[in-house]
Design a protein around this nucleic acid. Structure first.
Lengths: 156, 156
DNA sequence: GGTGAAATCCTCGAGTG
DNA sequence: CACTCGAGGATTTCACC
């Protein structure tokens, strides 16, 4: 097990809140020197606890106002790799979760409008050996701070 | 509609890949001056397209190796606000999506082990006026680059 | 959108317990 | 081994063109 002490967790929390926070800012908050903070963050990246940094985007403001989850069922013999490959080929697919039991996968999609959603679902149904889908339209969402983009619970 | 041109989209793509990229690095890639890049990124933040920056974490490496989606059904009269409030009170809940139709909500949870998952589901069932749940255990996942933490398709 | 300069920050080697 | 210190170089930031 990787050793991540309380100081590391504090740094991770600070970076979740603001991934562009400076080392000097973090140093002041946790009571270490700038160099010590940098070494810890570098180490968290080396051991793979930190996999990267990214920007959080309000996709609705870019015209991608609709998100949905599509449950997909595949033919029994379909390997996981094919499930993922076919779904990830669609640019509207944000994430693919392979599932134990029923359904076989849960696919998060983001689209411009309902027509667009229809097209994406049709594409999903055509790929691989899909035997059925059920789409859950997202009305609103909340995410824990620093997990993904803070979304609102109302349409923009 | 907010005006986001091709240069802005390039900057967003670069920041999705690496949220800590320097302005000088981005400037070199898109062919603008450092100050122009900063002005654009500042503006994207002001208009709300960029809602923040965050670190991507491999939760499995921190001992939170299991994730699941729980579909929740509520009593007919339950307001959305209560659904969200009760679910978000649990630290294991990563995201809550309110859904049109059936189920009423999709809740993303992250836990340490199966016992822990059981406890969280029990808590969810006890809160508010939950009439039923169905939990989808995540076996593996893929996310589009720069959306959330790059997860792997195998257990760590 | 570009330039330039001051303030801040990052980076890394050297030293300390 | 993890931390602090300090100096040189890079980056950010802002007023002005």
């Amino acid at each position: 097990m990787i050793d991540v002490d309380d100081l590391d967790h504090q740094l991770l929390r600070l970076l979740r809140e603001d991934g562009r926070r400076t080392f000097s800012d973090m140093a002041a908050q946790v009571g270490l020197s700038v160099a010590a903070v940098k070494r810890r963050v570098d180490r968290l990246q080396e051991v793979g606890v930190i996999t990267g940094f990214t920007v959080q985007i309000d996709h609705a403001k870019l015209g991608w106002g609709i998100e949905a989850f599509t449950e997909v069922r595949y033919a029994g013999a379909t390997p996981v790799s094919e499930i993922v490959r076919t779904a990830t080929g669609l640019p509207e697919v944000q994430a693919v979760f392979t599932i134990a039991g029923d359904p076989d996968a849960l696919i998060h999609v983001r689209v411009r409008d309902i027509d667009h959603l229809q097209q994406v679902i049709d594409s999903l149904r055509r790929t691989g050996s899909v035997t059925g889908t059920k789409t859950l339209m997202v009305l609103g969402s909340w995410t824990r701070d620093g997990w993904d983009a803070p979304r609102t619970l109302r349409r923009p």
